[in-house]
Amino acid sequence: MSILLSLRGLKVAFPVGGSLFRAAKPLKAVDGVDLELSAGEALGIVGESGCGKSTLARAILQLIPPTSGQVVWLGRDISAVSVNAMRPLRKDMQIVFQDPLASLDPRMTVGEIVAEPLRVHAGELDRTQRRERVQDMLQRVGLPADAINRYPHEFSGGQCQRIGIARAMILRPQLLVCDEPVSALDVSIQAQIVNLLQDLKREFGMSILFVSHNLAVVRRLCDRVLVLYLGKPMELTSTEELYERPLHPYTRGLIAAVPLPDPDVQPSRLGSVLSGELPSPLSPPSGCVFRTRCPIAEAQCARAVPELDEVRKGHHVACVKWQSVEQG
């Protein structure tokens, strides 16, 4: 399969607390991510709140400028291209947001919202043709035909997310970035939206970058998963491998934290759930950033930053003690 997107040492830092007299401190939201995404692949990015998942998604789309590193899109480094040069490329990379209602302009009808990417990138279409495309796409994502003339606030959260997906898919992009698209929705609606994304992927064959903190949803949809912690990649492997044989203590903790609908099993698992708080990203721990919460951390973990090594075929992990995780 051809490589659609690759990230090389991607870093994003925000200056924090600067003033006229004091230099700002960099908050490293994304700290060195290497990744390759093939055409047609669905990759999940998981981690706790504040680990840099959403920043990573936005940096890939150049909505936030990366501090260093490269974003290579179809063989071309787009991390330094101008805003104007970026515009035509946006046709092939679209995004679905977390808050369905906030991502739709309250002053526009659903038809205008979904047609907006067409206005920018498909100027050759006239009004009727545009309307036809919009109508088709609305139907495709499961919205009623009269939705086109109504306003976003008339719809439920799940329907608004369908509108957001319709807008993202109307140009048939090669990459669809989903930034926690279901975390603001009811559980029953979540399943519908995930199914819709699955159907669209089957039909249009685009790649999906699925950012989520919900491991169950990621397992359903994704081929591979990247685990992030404080902006650093912890583990990267196929979905099956990750859930069956996690090699990073953090991944283990995340999987253990997924609630099971079984009252006999659930309480006994809580012992292995992660404890403690996420350290401040302004002053991350030395060495391995996870060591402050790691159940098996040793003195050596504070000294050197572990590399993301390929320890099995296609299974990358950034932990010096991955072998002891595998055994115990």
């Binding site: 936005r58 789309l61 909505l63 970026m86 515009r87 035509p88 946006r90 046709k91 990379m93 679209q94 995004i95 947001f97 977390q98 808050d99 906030a102 991502s103 739709l104 302009d105 309250p106 002053r107 526009m108 907006e116 990417p117 920018v120 990138h121 957001g164 807008r167």
Partner: peptide, 23 residues
């Protein structure tokens, strides 16, 4: 987020100002 969505769709600065901010 709808401003970000417009940016991600490739709408230019004037388009965002006149079509999204002003209304």
């Amino acid at each position: 987020e709808f401003i970000e969505a417009a940016l991600a769709s490739g709408v230019g600065t004037w388009g965002i100002l006149l079509r999204h901010i002003v209304p």
